[in-house]
Nucleic acid binder design. Structure first.
Length: 332
DNA sequence: AAGATTATCAACCGCATAAAT
DNA sequence: TATTTATGCGGTTGATAATCT
């Protein structure tokens, strides 16, 4: 003898909810709570399955749901968490107050995932399918794309370079919307992340200022391959990585950024925290093993993790492989 | 302007697991 | 303990909106 059936499957309405149904559901839950979803539809006067009611409430009618576009910070958190959790949408949603698993899943599948693929990044592994330089040196430069690229690349840097500033804060204070909901993400995982956070300390202090671009290029001569059309990205890289006061634990200043992108930087805590000497990007940008076997590759430097000190300045340089034969235009 | 194509997102489906009997 | 249902989750669908040709 088991439980009684959830609900009579016959004669129940399906499809989009009407305003009248929404009103009944909201009214009932406000007065009585949702209680058992099995009995709710009958008590609320709804010809719906309890499952449908639960879904409608949790994904749409709940008063604490945040609507509207995802912020840069939210997107960064999603990418960071996805890189560690995979498609655990409910676990990701548990750390994004006001966002539902369904919403995050949709956002990932319709936007982030597609952008990553366009940029040659495998959304499942967060590893590149091709390299950054090829994209940046592309002749048919598109500023909009580059802004988009920067946005994603910054968040990816953030997730892949063990920048757990934001994430660490979220994990230390997990914001589960409903205390009845068990954290589906076991403490074991959180513990691992905390270790990673400790392993890569954060940038939190001072007002370090960057050198100008000329100084950067001099210090980095032969490493960059400046192209007029990729100045935006390079300016950001330059100013992020080179500072007379750039020391571990220092925050970064964007005072002398290219004026075309200040809004991109402002409020971008991911980007600030990324510029630690402790960050390690090699794994982010190294070519996947499956591709180079078919390609003639050359090597260049963009920015990376050697943590060298040049002329009194710290630099973060690393090698990436450029697949010569890959037609990156197909991805853009 | 109209039809075709693509993007978005609410809702459903099926499965795994928890819970009730 | 076995059986059956309830619940929650992730994958997928399909209606609608937006954009393109």
């Amino acid at each position: 003898m088991g439980r009684a059936p959830c609900c009579d499957k016959h004669g129940l309405k399906k499809g989009p909810w009407t305003p009248d149904e929404d009103e009944k559901l909201i009214d009932h839950i406000q007065k009585h709570g949702h209680g058992s979803w099995r009995t709710l539809p009958k008590n609320a006067g709804l010809a719906r399955c309890g499952k449908s009611c639960r879904l409608r409430w949790t994904n749409y009618l709940r008063p604490d749901i945040k609507r509207g576009k995802f912020s840069f910070e939210e997107e960064g958190i999603i990418i960071q968490l996805h890189s560690m959790l995979g498609n655990k949408w409910s676990a990701i949603a548990a750390r994004l107050p006001g966002r539902t698993d369904n919403e995050i899943k949709n956002y990932w599948n319709t936007r982030i995932r597609k952008r990553l693929l366009r940029m040659g990044i495998d959304p499942a592994t967060h590893s590149p399918l091709l390299d950054l330089s090829s994209l940046l040196n592309r002749s048919s430069y598109n500023p909009n794309y580059q802004l988009d690229f920067f946005r994603l690349a910054t968040n990816l840097q953030s997730s892949q370079s063990q920048n757990f500033n934001l994430l660490g804060r979220k994990l230390q204070e997990p914001q589960l919307p409903n205390p009845q909901v068990q954290d589906p993400f076991p403490s074991f995982q959180d513990h691992q992340l905390q270790n990673q956070i400790q392993e890569f300390p954060l940038c939190t202090t001072s007002n370090a200022r960057f050198l100008d671009k000329a100084q950067l290029m001099q210090a980095n001569e032969g490493q960059f391959q400046p192209q007029a059309q990729s100045h935006l990205w390079q300016d950001v890289v330059a100013q992020a990585n080179f500072s007379e006061n750039f020391v571990p634990g220092a925050s970064v200043s964007f005072d002398n950024l290219d004026p075309s992108i200040p809004q991109l930087i402002s409020g971008n805590s991911n980007f600030q925290a990324t510029n630690s000497l402790n960050y390690r990007q090699t794994s982010v940008l190294s070519a996947p093993a499956s591709i180079p076997t078919q390609l003639n590759s050359s090597t260049t430097y963009v920015n990376g993790n050697t943590q060298d000190e040049k002329d009194g300045y710290y630099s973060n340089l690393f090698k990436i492989q450029i697949p010569d034969l890959l037609d990156v235009s197909a991805y853009m």
